[in-house]
Design a protein around this nucleic acid. Structure first.
Lengths: 253, 253
DNA sequence: CGATTTCCTTCACCTTGGTTAGGCCCCGAG
DNA sequence: CTCGGGGCCTAACCAAGGTGAAGGAAATCG
């Protein structure tokens, strides 16, 4: 994967064959207006009516809702290439907030330009639609994950994040940046942070993960997938199980 | 609400002002190829690659996933006006199954016609997009709901279903058809059926619901919403809090 | 009409994970 | 260097809800 290329392009190419013109449009769109958001700062607040579309270029963020009792439920982790609010032109206001979990570089896209894209670039439009459908599939999986026991639930979540990071080229030899605290992981899986700690310990003891210094290493992805009941087909990645790459890895091992 | 009108039109009008031409297109689309599915039969199987788009015209259905241990997690309830697989042209295969919970009347729409719509009818396209975004918002709420205790979780689910049924004109004086067994409700909230029973009892004892003969009556919607922490803004209904209607209700009370 | 199946209900027991609280370590600020 | 805060880890206790079993009501079907 060409890591100098725009991360959104890298992501979309996991689904569609983009023309040079498509890529040019994306590059222009993403380069115009870029800002930074510090960790723990809201990128978009619940109830806001954003006037731009926000795209994560670097860093990690989370969609979240606050419950009446003050508990925070994270409903999605956003990584580079993910949109925060592709829907601003359709839905009036945000029904949840988005917070940076690690320092984020964010592109602010003009909503009008998106309208143009949907009218002129059909491949791109379909690719964007694919993105929102995958987001929905991930969400469905999170609902299912809520019913799993703590250990498989965490294993499944980590497999999801690994696969998504891999699809944008951010996994290097089974290691990737996971700049989340145990409490944030707890807020995503709906556990208490105490129990998240217990669960992480348990995966560690079984040799399924190594997690230190905001880096996660998964020695045996297959094994973790098995304990999590993880099957990546719901991510609808064209590049998944790419035969050439798989064989390449096997030759190395 | 004109109850003789096509249910999809009724639903979309909760969001957009449709032209007569838009409506004509929908009516034609929905009338061409209609079938029936008996309760407990799959409408679409997990992993299938449907060649039509399925739209529920009557009855209830559910999206579901099976866990490795055989447990079933319902991830959405589908009621009249809901699409099963609007995305067939984008995503290759289903990542979950859809089963009829009550006898369903289903329209089979030609996927190609949808492509035409997206190229010619912009209002309609936006309205369809709105639908998928609301589905996603509902899903997000289900993730949140998974962290609630049993009683508020059930209260929230029932409020959602009430509001959605109301938005397509299927609530009559706080009563609507809810053709679900306690086990199906349990599969949706991730409880055991035993505990779902306990929870229903509890809501009954508090006078918050009456549920017999597949009919649910919510004597005081506000009260149920309060115990469920329910706020309907995430459903993005233009017709919500319609001032005229609200006042009308208050005059009655 | 009776038979069968499905659904609802209740009970006793037990597991998972929440809660509270406290100690530790590391790092940055003063 | 010391202080303080955030994140990590552990322990003891407890409650929500799961499990399995079994009786009863109700709908379905022949």
């Amino acid at each position: 994967m060409n890591m100098t290329e725009n991360v959104l392009i890298r992501k979309l190419e996991g689904y569609a064959q983009l023309s040079d013109d498509d890529k040019r449009v994306i590059r222009e769109l993403c380069g115009e207006n870029v800002g930074k958001v510090a960790a723990h700062r809201d990128i978009i607040r619940d109830g806001a009516t954003p006037d731009h579309i926000h795209l994560i270029l670097e860093g990690w963020a989370a969609r979240y809702k606050l419950l009446p009792d003050g508990a925070r439920q994270i409903t999605a982790f956003l990584i580079p290439g993910d949109f925060c609010d592709l829907h601003v032109t359709v839905l009036a206001e945000m029904d949840h907030g988005i917070v940076a979990l690690a320092p984020c570089k964010v592109a602010y896209l003009d909503a009008k330009v998106l309208d143009e894209i949907t009218s002129k670039h059909s491949t791109l439009t379909k690719a964007l639609w694919w993105m929102t459908l995958v987001d929905e599939a991930v969400l469905r999986q999170w609902v299912v994950n809520g019913r799993r026991r703590a250990i498989p639930a965490l294993a499944h979540l980590l497999c999801e994040l690994h696969q998504r990071m891999k699809s944008i080229g951010l996994v290097d030899d089974r290691v990737f940046e996971l700049p989340l605290t145990q409490e944030e992981l707890a807020d995503a899986t709906g556990m208490s942070s105490v129990h998240m700690n217990r669960t992480i310990q348990s995966l560690r003891e079984r040799g399924l993960i190594e997690f230190r210094m905001k880096k996660l290493r998964i020695p045996d992805v297959q094994a973790l997938a098995k304990t999590g009941g993880f099957d990546d087909s719901y991510l609808h990645l064209r590049t998944t199980h790419r035969p050439s790459e798989e064989q390449h890895l096997q030759l190395e091992a």
